[in-house]
Amino acid sequence: MPLRVIEIVTPREDKEEVIKSLEEHRPDEGYVFWASPLDDDSALSFRVILDVQESENVLDKLENLFSWNEKYRIIVFAAEATIPRLKIPEKEEPEVTQNDKNAEVTIKNRISREELYSDVLDTSVMSKSYVMLVIFSALVAVIGLMRGNVAIIIGAMVLAPLLGPNVGFSLATTLGDKKLALESSKTLAVGVALAFLVSLGAGLLLGLPKISSELLLRSTTSFSDIILAIVSGAAGIISFTLGVPTSLVGVMVALSILPPLSACGIFLGAGETGHAAGAGLLFLTNIICLNLAGVVTFLLQGIQPLTWWDRERAKVTAIRMAFLWGIMLAILILFLYFGIIS
């Protein structure tokens, strides 16, 4: 199991209070900790080493303890190993009263909410690097689609600049975080617009004397595409929550977001409106399935805000959005079933 180090910087006068709190919770989480003085002699640094699955429980307890005060600072970073190894605590079933909703301690087989939020935020924020990545990815996709070269298309899939903002929007929905939702939506909108314009320009300038098989594959939608998008989306979300970025490569390839969008732009620029509509529909299908799978998987993984009032509000938002994505998917399935679209 991966390890995490939680560093707590506190004023020196609060040393005993922090030690008492850490000692009280140590039997539940099975961590070890120690304190070190900082250079200015007015603050201490506590370091706690524990399994990643316990990090959210400890962070939530620390945040409740500090509630929140500018005097404190908590930093989380990864640890490769510790010697001697951590002991696995023997857990007893905790008694949870109605008046103490935060008393329940559950093992979460994932990274902490704060660590997940930081990882997702990195891929959801608008930046010059993101804009360049979208443009380069779109160019790679256009070249691969026009040449019918699968290897080049996979290169565009691996870059996957549109995956992060979608995951960010799903996490924002689950947490009821309006700021992250707006940032992810803005980043996604800009990314989609740029990729489409690059592809449209290629279609207008170069035309389409020959439609490659790879382009044709992105101009139709089938039930298998829906299943693939849902399964791949759920797998991608789990990869994020486990903090295993290497497994995302396979998800990026399976969940093809950019190539259908590029195909739509190429077809439209070349005057192939029928094929353009089909490619646009496949792109929309992937977006719907990814966000639906994202919200549901985040909920199943137990991702929720810290305080109970935020949890209730976020739960309502997540259920409403999941219902909305589900309705859109149901309409799409009905259209496919009755042959209205293909």
Rank of each mutant, 00 (worst) to 15 (best):
E183C: 05
Y31G: 04
E80S: 07
I327R: 10
E92H: 13
L329T: 07
L215P: 01
V296N: 15
A270H: 03
I319N: 08
L162G: 03
K108W: 01
L133T: 15
G168P: 06
N166S: 14
M146N: 14
S185R: 06
L180D: 04
P259K: 07
D122A: 15
V5R: 03
N166R: 13
S170R: 11
E29I: 09
A254R: 07
T82G: 00
T173C: 14
N69S: 11
C289H: 05
V249P: 02
N99E: 09
Q304S: 15
S137A: 14
R73P: 00
A276E: 02
M132D: 11
W34S: 10
N286H: 09
H25C: 01
V140Q: 05
S199R: 10
T187C: 07
P260L: 02
A330V: 14
A293Q: 11
I238V: 10
E70P: 04
H25M: 12
D60C: 07
V58Y: 01
T97W: 00
L299T: 14
D225T: 08
K108D: 08
F267W: 03
E183R: 13
V131G: 06
K315Y: 13
P11Q: 03
L268D: 02
N286P: 10
L200S: 04
S112P: 06
E312K: 10
G203T: 02
S127G: 09
G326T: 08
R73D: 00
T174Q: 08
L133A: 15
I74Y: 00
P11N: 07
F77I: 05
L175V: 10
I340D: 00
L228W: 09
R47G: 02
L204D: 01
L44N: 07
L258E: 07
N102Y: 04
L208T: 01
E95R: 15
T173F: 09
L329Q: 09
S199T: 10
A189I: 06
F66R: 04
T273E: 13
C289P: 11
G233R: 08
I107D: 09
T317W: 12
